[in-house]
Each structure stands twice: as C-alpha cells, then as structure tokens.
C-alpha cells in the first residue's frame, strides 16, 4: 500500500505516540489520545498533506488508519 507508512507517521505524530504502537486496524476509540479534536486534526492534516478532499459520504467512517489509507489511495 503506497501511502500507508506515510499516513501512519502523520497520525502517530498528531497523537503523540510511537508509530510502532499504532495498530492500523484499531478503531479511534481504542487508540491512545485519538479523541474527537485530534480526529478532526488528522482529517484536516491529511487533506492538506495529500491535497485531497475526503468525500462527505465517507468522512464519518474514516476512524482507523487503514480506512484513511484506503480512502486516500482511492482519491490519489
């Protein structure tokens, strides 16, 4: 997967946790520091970083790293 490790780095940076601690399939509610504010920061940061816009129909479902990576892959 082309962007997965890059996304992981960005998300772990925002959550301020070691990247190896971030399970790509874990739902945000099960990941340390992934609260509502940081979730919005993650979405906005990834949109700017990859110069994309998550579709309205999908944005509420992007609550783990794998889902974010799949969506970004689709949009690039």
């Amino acid at each position: 997967m082309k962007y997965l490790s890059e996304i992981k780095e960005i998300v772990a940076g925002i959550l301020q946790i070691p990247v190896e601690q971030l399970d790509v399939n874990a739902n945000m509610n099960d990941v340390e520091n992934w609260d509502s504010l940081r979730n919005l920061v993650i979405l906005s940061t990834l949109e700017e970083h990859f110069e994309i816009q998550f579709p309205d129909d999908d944005i509420f479902d992007l609550t783990n790293v794998q889902a974010l990576a799949d969506e970004i892959e689709k949009l690039k």
Partner: peptide, 14 residues
C-alpha cells in the same frame, strides 16, 4: 456531552 463513543469523531461536537 457526547456519550455515544461512535460519535466521538468531532463532527457532533462541532
């Protein structure tokens, strides 16, 4: 107060 964890994504809050 957002009590349902599935709605902790920030959008309900905003």
């Amino acid at each position: 107060v957002i009590g349902d964890k599935d709605y902790h994504d920030g959008f309900a809050w905003i």
